[in-house]
Amino acid sequence: MSEHSCLVVEDSPMMRQLLVFALARIKKLKVTEAEDGVDGLRKLAGGKFDLVITDINMPIMDGLKLVKRIRSDETHKDVPIIIITTEGSQEDRQRAMALGATAYITKPIQAPQVIAKVKELLVLD
């Protein structure tokens, strides 16, 4: 039975699948996928999550707006949020952190980096 649940919000199916692949290596972690910010909010409304991983650049609702919405949501306002950015987009990263993101991961994504960050935030061995 899963002890933790994680929501992955990423518009690129390839990146989403890569993240899911990486997270599958963490025991007792249930992963839910969302295609963009709006889909992410829908999924958040339908359940309780311990962690959110979101890309910044997405259509319909980007990662920055999603971070802002999550922080104003009573159920998930304290949930840790990891944002995915590129090395060059320092401004986006700073804005996301200012809006309440907990940590960030830079692209290209490396599975060990993702696993380590998730374990750190969920306090797993």
Binding site: M14, L18, A22, A111, P112
Partner: peptide, 20 residues
């Protein structure tokens, strides 16, 4: 080994998505 797993995952996902 971790790096190889990561690389293989990347290749698998890339190939999978390309033809999906």
């Amino acid at each position: 080994i971790e790096q190889e797993i990561n690389d293989l995952a990347n290749l698998y996902v890339a190939g999978f998505q390309l033809h999906a």
